[in-house]
Structure formats: structure tokens, C-alpha cells
């Protein structure tokens, strides 16, 4: 559906919101068609949906840029462009700024679709309420849609933050247990202890024991309490085995072999 309104120079303008075009008819010159930028056309469409009603800057931005985040400067720029095109850059009589509230279209400039170019200036006919009513419901619906989308994004953002926090706490190992992995070919040795110093010392002892592990496969977990060492293994078959021994009395490599079933 097209909208018709008059400019200050009495030119009749037909605005087609679907094609983003303005057809400007003047008495003196042949009709001129101008294609507006999409956002500019959407702004004009919103203001014309409810002529005379004030549209907030936020509502205009949401409608014109489909809820994309744009700066206030973009809106100012679009209004500036529209006013230039509509010859309203000086007086702002057509696109009226309502301080701290937004913008409205001057409904006095609207004319019925039946009006033609021969109609004298100054005798503009206000668009029948029926035309406006047809567009009011979609406009409200669109505004509500914008709010719903914003609320949806807000809710999903909060949920995403909560999920990230859960992921962080869920995947982080408990602070009261320290582990350090030593990878030796197909064998993985993990030193386990309650403090980092304890684990580092155990890791150093394992490394300095000079064990040859080329023939061993699987996972070994090692911890030490006092003189006793605890070895837990997951053999290559998937079976688990556990050994406890004195680090001083037993050779580490033979314990590894027993534990891993080699």
C-alpha cells in the first residue's frame, strides 16, 4: 500500500514502502522517482503508519534496523537524509522532532489516494481514518515483536552466562586435588596429590628413577602418603588394578609392570 502526502512546494508524493520509492509529482516538472535507502524508507513507513503519533527513537531504530544495534547517529543521519529529499531540511515541518521523545509525521500533509496533481496546494485532505487503522495493528504488532525479541535475547544471554559459569566450574578440577601428567610413549603416568609441591616432588621422583617404559601401555596414577606409595592402573584391556607398596622397598618399574599386567 502506498502513502500520499504533500510537500511544502505542493508537490504530491507517493511513497511505496515495499519498493522504498518516492514518486514526486510537481506541476512544473515530470514525475521524479527516488529510491530511498532501506533504513530511510523504513523510518518513513513507521512514521506514516500512525501519522501524527510520536514514535520514540528506540522504536524507530528497532523497526528500521530490525533490532540490529546501531548508533543514535545512524538515526540522525537517516532523518537528515529524508528531510533533504523531502525539502524539509530547514523548517522540519514534515518530519517533526519532538524533543526528548522522538519524531512524528505531520498528518496535515497527508492526502487521500484520490488526490491528483491538479489539486490546489493548501487543500490537502487528511487521510481517512480507515487507511490509518489498517496499518495500526501491524505497527503495534511489530513493536511488540521487537520487545519480545529483546526480552528473548536478554533471557538467552542470562541463560548463556549461567551455562558458561556452570561449564567453568564443572570442568575445573577441584582445588583440593592436584594432578600432573607425564606422557611416556603409549604410557600415561599421572601424579596425584593434595598439593602442588607434593605432586611436583612425586613427578620428579618418577622421572629421576630412570624407568624405561617403552614396553608399557595404559594409564598409571600414582600418589604417595608418607613412605607408602599407591599405584592405580588402567590396563590396555581396560581392567583396573591397584597396588600399595613402600617406595623404598620396591622397585618402581617392577610395580609398574605388575600393575599394568605386563
Amino acid at each position: 500500500m502506498s502513502y500520499y502526502f504533500r510537500l511544502k512546494n505542493s508537490a504530491l508524493v507517493e511513497f511505496d514502502p515495499d519498493r522504498y520509492t518516492l514518486l514526486i509529482n510537481t506541476l512544473q516538472n515530470p514525475p521524479e522517482e527516488i529510491t530511498l535507502a532501506r533504513a530511510d524508507a523504513r523510518i518513513l513507513e513507521l512514521l506514516l503508519l500512525e501519522p501524527g503519533a510520536i514514535c520514540s527513537r528506540e522504536a524507530i531504530m528497532a523497526f528500521a534496523w530490525d533490532d540490529r544495534v546501531v548508533s543514535a547517529g545512524s538515526l540522525n543521519q537517516s532523518i537528515f537524509m529524508l528531510r533533504n529529499i523531502l525539502g524539509d531540511s530547514k523548517d522540519h515541518d514534515l518530519l517533526i522532532t519532538v524533543p526528548r521523545r522522538g519524531y512524528r509525521f505531520n498528518s496535515d500533509q497527508l492526502v487521500s489516494p484520490a488526490s491528483n496533481i491538479e489539486q490546489p496546494a493548501g487543500q490537502s485532505i487528511v487521510e481517512p481514518p480507515s487507511i490509518t487503522r489498517v496499518h495500526l495493528a501491524p505497527a503495534i504488532e511489530k513493536q511488540r515483536l521487537g520487545i519480545a525479541i529483546r526480552l528473548g535475547y536478554l533471557a538467552v544471554s542470562v541463560f548463556a552466562l549461567f551455562t558458561l559459569w556452570q561449564l567453568y566450574t564443572g570442568y575445573e578440577l577441584p582445588h583440593d586435588l592436584q594432578v600432573a601428567e607425564i606422557k611416556q610413549g603409549a604410557l600415561s603416568i599421572t601424579a596425584v596429590g593434595k598439593s602442588k609441591q607434593e605432586v611436583d616432588a612425586l613427578k620428579a621422583d618418577v622421572l629421576s628413577s630412570g624407568i624405561v617404559t617403552d614396553h608399557l601401555r595404559g594409564e598409571v596414577f600414582i600418589s604417595r602418603t608418607g613412605s607408602r606409595t599407591n599405584l592405580s592402573c588402567v590396563q590396555k584391556t581396560g581392567d583396573a588394578y591397584n597396588l600399595e607398596f613402600s617406595f623404598r622397598e620396591e622397585r618402581l618399574i617392577s610395580m609398574f609392570e605388575k600393575c599394568l599386567g605386563s
Partner: peptide, 14 residues
């Protein structure tokens, strides 16, 4: 595999 903190006991089970 788990470590019982109170017992300083390491175990792997399948």
C-alpha cells in the same frame, strides 16, 4: 578413578 581425600587412598575401578 578417584582419590579419597580423607584416606589418601587412590583407586581405579572398572
Amino acid at each position: 578413578c578417584y582419590y579419597i581425600l580423607e584416606l589418601d587412598r587412590l583407586r581405579c575401578m572398572n
